[in-house]
Design a protein around this nucleic acid. Structure first.
Lengths: 187, 187
DNA sequence: ACAAACATACCAACTGGTCGGTATCTTTTA
DNA sequence: TAAAAGATACCGACCAGTTGGTATGTTTGT
């Protein structure tokens, strides 16, 4: 999506129409405003992410929940290659600009992020149930932390124009998770 | 800064002039373009951050480098209160929109982030020298990880319109650092 | 006197969004 | 069953307002 490269405000409706190969009339027939498109795009993003991360990949069928969680991290790591607009997060980019100027966009972005974290927390919860966790860490808070590291890594990747430092950060995250589940010294 | 609330593209030169109480003519007398202002603002941001984080606070004089590092994290945590535009990062916001469309802005943002991380790595290096660190973690990579968690936490705070989840994420970061330095079980 | 600092008026390009109109598909009615 | 009536999808010219930037003047410090 164009928005991931240049941001929400910098992407004009004309550009979007040209990229999608539709006329401006058609655009405003389907969406009352640019903002409404943003909301719809966020919803579609959520659905696509759910599919791409939690449904399609083969590793989602790993039985052990901790192994599955770590495979998830590896997958995110694997995706972080090439230009940043290829692997960064649409809602993360959008909410950064719009959280104060548009409640609908903020709410839609929040819903997308929350849906991802809630889904991730299910796996984490299962891993905690099986292996226990140190420090009384809650599943949902760890899920949000994972999301935060990823979003932050995206920003680093954009600034550096290279995913190297971003990947290292995700490796730190992986190490942290292993340590939490007492797998730190096993490595 | 206005940019931290609404983003770089969505903040017009007119708005900036009005907020700064100068005329548009004066603006373009000092800066050749909006982009040039962005670069200058990033440089000023770097200087302000250096002062606010590494020079002025009382805790920078803590002798123990690990204690100092943890105090730094606590300070960042302490700052995360109130509306997001009050504690989020200017260059982080700017680079997200401009990394692909403006090399000068990307480079300036990168320089700001790198300066922070390089400075932070000095303290981390000292802490490693004194206490050692598990997993062969490098100081600079941990510094980037800290930066990533903060940037990611800012996005979560914006999406949630509340710093709660963001603070939790920084607490995870603090726990991770303690664990790396073998202070995990001391808590 | 002269340049730097600043202000005012202005511009062409672009912004999100509207509008009148057309083509096509669905439903109603006799 | 087929014409009439209505809805839906779509187009592209157009609009008022805003954008970054400029041209031209006025003030100020030395």
């Amino acid at each position: 999506m164009l928005v991931r490269r240049q941001g929400y405000a910098a992407t004009s409706v004309d550009e979007i129409c040209a990229a999608a190969g539709v006329s401006k009339g058609a655009f405003f027939h389907h969406f009352a405003s640019k903002e409404e498109l943003g909301v719809a795009a966020a919803e579609q993003w959520t659905a696509r992410a759910e599919e791409l991360i939690f449904t399609l990949p083969h590793w989602v069928r790993i039985e052990d929940p901790l192994e599955r969680l770590l495979a998830h991290i590896d997958f995110r790591l694997f995706m972080m290659e090439g230009p940043a607009e290829g692997f960064t997060c649409f809602v993360g980019t959008m909410v950064q600009e719009s959280f104060a100027s548009s409640e609908p966009l903020r709410v839609a972005s929040d819903a997308s992020i929350s849906a991802y974290c809630d889904r991730l927390a299910v796996d984490i919860e299962a891993a905690i149930a099986r292996y226990g966790i140190s420090g009384g860490v809650s599943a949902i808070s760890l899920a949000y932390h994972i999301q935060a590291v990823l979003q932050g890594a995206f920003i680093i990747a954009k600034a550096k124009n290279s995913p190297k430092e971003a990947r290292d950060s995700v490796l730190h995250l992986k190490r942290y998770i292993k340590m939490l589940f007492d797998r730190g010294d096993a490595k």
